[in-house]
Design a protein around this nucleic acid. Structure first.
Length: 623
RNA sequence: GCCCUGAUAGCUCAACUGGCAGAGCGUCCGCCUCGUAAGCGGAAGGUUGGGGGUUCGAGGCCCCUUCAGGGCUCCA
């Protein structure tokens, strides 16, 4: 059990006066004038900081501050003297840590406009005081911090974070979001409102959940932990293509693909300090007597790899990439939602080392463009949010404007007064779902902290080691979440009377062949063969249903091209195709149709049809 | 994690206040061989999520539990 971290002896005094006489070897440097102090009507706070985990610094300082103020107000003291007093404890912390904690308490008190005097640390001091002697004038306190579970510290910091919102136009106008006229920017408005209020009564389940089941893509798996899903062949197929496509984009951009372990030792020194920056709850795996946590991204694996690499400034920018199949985040059970938020998910994760901010900005922008391309390839509309630390924003205003220009519409800007996280800025591409909730897909962040923490170095021209800047990039965001975005978007389309569809390159079946009767089977099979060789995903409805029934089946599966072949086609050696998008029927040759489909597949990965070509050979995965 | 709601055939859902567990779709068998979103007939299919309790009797009431959806919270 982690227990006592700090002991306080608190005296309400008529006065206290001290003079620092002589340095010890751990003395803090203080200017001459601060070596002496006197305060009337003071609360004298004698402090011993004990040997304990430094991670608790903020927390312990906060609690101590609260204790002091509690007593201060009860006894109606007028000022506070913080007096380092080692003799309260036999188990002292390191001097540096103690100094830091006491300063922190001092600062916290000053921030709240209390008059504070600090006696110098590590000096032999003479002091004199007169204790008031009323019942509350002599108190001791032990400040304890419960062992916090391995979670959730950065979060608490965020709660006190001051943030402000703006809308930045492509013309470069930066307007406080409250004053912005959202009339023509409905989706940005929804996004902004979701970000700032979040709460709304929407007692419906997101429509993608029904769709992912009905289309036999993905399903719940009650035998697993919550938020771990079962992927049927068609879902797996779409997922693989998305993965392959985003990986291709990232590799073509120049990232080196790697693979790193999915679990890490809790006790690893660097990782544990990193974990404190992350509010997530982890899955824990036991192996012998050790505990490992499952990664929530590829960060660790790549940091540790980069730490061991020998990197010259000539190698920068340097990019490592991994498709994290899987990442694990033990989200609170109430937060899980279909494909939107999972406990086990797949996400591309790239880290780019950059020499300086100029290079980092350049890479950031290139990755921004890659993300734009991604969104276009999956046919999803999005809004952009950029989040900055104030100081960084003031220096990089032009940069933000450029991002608004690139997407050609106003974007949301959030500004933090202080840097609570490890990054100074990030962008996010966000989509609105059918319930007007927002979800982040693509995101890139500029990290100014972790190369130091993980001791990642490159050697500059002078032969000296330097910590580079680090970009975290997920060009597509979570793959699962991309499918959620597609399904929600298509659902919204169906509400507008349009037919929902997958982009052609993601359609499990691109072309369905329906013979009018068994007499036409042989011709239908010729066509099947033809398209298979043309790399079109084609299948054939060889079951005993009526034509109408088969059409209905095909439409329910969102098949983009449905070819009906009967005596007419057989005679003319052509095909009559029903086009899902327009609903029209056209007759054309096999070559023409193949060209049409190939055109829509361009520059996208291809995989063969994930199910038997004959429908009569297909099992039902669900209902 | 907390609060609310829910779980009945493979799927979607019925079953009045506690009184014989049902339909449509799908599956299987047979008929039909069909021109652009459901052809016809028949059969099989259930420890009502799991466990415990109350009751002459529980799908429906009580307790526990698992999973799902929503709200809070959270979203690196």
């Amino acid at each position: 059990m982690r227990g006592v971290i700090m002991k306080l002896l608190i005296l309400h005094t008529d006065y206290i006066e001290f003079i620092a006489k002589q340095k010890t070897k751990i003395a803090e440097d203080v200017p001459e004038e601060k070596r002496h102090g006197r305060a009337e009507e003071a609360l004298a706070v004698f402090i011993a900081v004990e040997k304990e985990d430094e991670k608790a610094k903020d927390k312990i300082a906060e609690k101590a501050t609260e204790e002091i103020l509690d007593i201060y107000s009860k006894v109606k003291a007028q000022r506070i003297v913080l007096y380092p007093y080692a003799h309260l404890s036999s188990s002292l912390s390191k001097p540096d840590f103690a100094i830091a904690v006491i300063r922190l308490i001092g600062n916290k008190l000053k921030e709240r406009d209390y008059e504070v005097i600090k006696a110098p640390f590590g000096w032999y001091k003479a002091f004199e005081l007169r204790c008031k002697g009323h019942p509350m004038s002599e108190l001791s306190r032990e400040i304890r911090v419960e062992e916090e579970k391995k979670e959730n510290r950065a979060l608490k910091a965020e709660q006190g974070l001051k943030k402000s919102w703006y809308v930045l136009t492509p013309e470069g106008d930066n307007i406080p979001a409250e004053e912005f006229d959202f009339t023509e920017y409905e989706s940005l408005k929804i996004f902004y409102e979701y970000e700032t209020s979040g709460t709304r009564i929407m007692n419906k389940e997101p429509p993608h959940i029904r769709l992912m089941k009905d289309l036999e893509l993905v399903d719940h798996e009650p035998a697993s932990d919550q938020g771990n899903l079962r992927w049927y062949p068609k879902g797996t197929f779409i997922k693989r293509l998305l993965e392959e496509h985003v990986s291709n984009i990232v590799r073509d951009y120049g990232a080196m693909e790697v693979e790193t372990p999915i679990m890490y030792d809790y006790a690893h020194e660097k990782l544990s300090s990193y974990l404190n920056r992350f509010p997530a709850r982890q899955y824990v795996v036991k192996s012998d007597d050790r505990e490992y946590f499952l990664r929530f991204a590829a960060c660790f694996g790549q940091y540790l790899m980069m730490h061991d690499m020998t990197i010259s400034y000539r190698h920068l920018p340097l990019r490592l990439y991994e498709l994290t199949h899987y990442s694990f985040r033990r989200e609170q059970s109430g937060e899980l939602a279909g494909l939107k938020r999972l406990r086990t998910f797949t996400m591309p994760d790239m880290h780019t080392l950059c020499r300086d901010m100029v290079q980092a900005r350049d890479e950031f922008l290139r990755q921004y463009r890659l993300s734009m391309r991604w969104m276009e390839d999956i046919s999803i509309d999005y809004d952009v949010a950029i989040r900055f630390v104030r100081e960084f924003y003031d220096e990089n205003r032009d940069f933000a404007v450029e991002m608004a220009k690139l997407v050609g519409k106003p974007i949301l800007v959030e500004i933090w007064e202080e840097r609570f996280f490890y990054f100074v800025m990030k962008f996010e591409f966000s989509i609105n779902d059918a319930l007007n909730k927002a979800a982040t897909l693509s995101t890139v962040q500029i990290d100014v902290e972790n190369t130091e923490r993980f001791d990642i170095n490159y050697v500059d021209e002078k032969g000296e080691g330097e910590h580079p800047l680090l970009l975290h990039a997920s060009i597509s965001g979570g793959i699962d979440r991309n499918l959620y975005a597609i399904l929600e978007t298509e659902y919204l389309k169906s509400l507008r009377g349009e037919k929902p569809s997958f982009p052609i390159w993601l359609s499990p079946t691109q072309l369905r062949i329906i013979p009018v009767s068994e007499k036409n089977m042989s011709y239908a099979e010729d066509i099947l063969e033809f398209f298979r060789e043309k790399k079109v995903r084609v299948d054939i409805d060889d079951e005993g249903d009526t034509l109408g029934k088969k059409i209905r089946k095909g439409e329910k599966e969102w098949i983009p091209y449905i070819a009906v072949v009967g005596a007419k086609e057989e005679e003319n050696r052509n095909i009559t195709v029903r086009l899902r998008k327009s609903g029209e029927q056209i007759t054309l040759s096999g070559e023409e149709l193949a060209e049409l489909i190939e055109g829509e597949n361009e520059n996208k990965p291809f995989m063969n049809i994930p199910l038997p070509e004959r429908l009569s050979m297909r099992p039902k995965f669900r209902g």
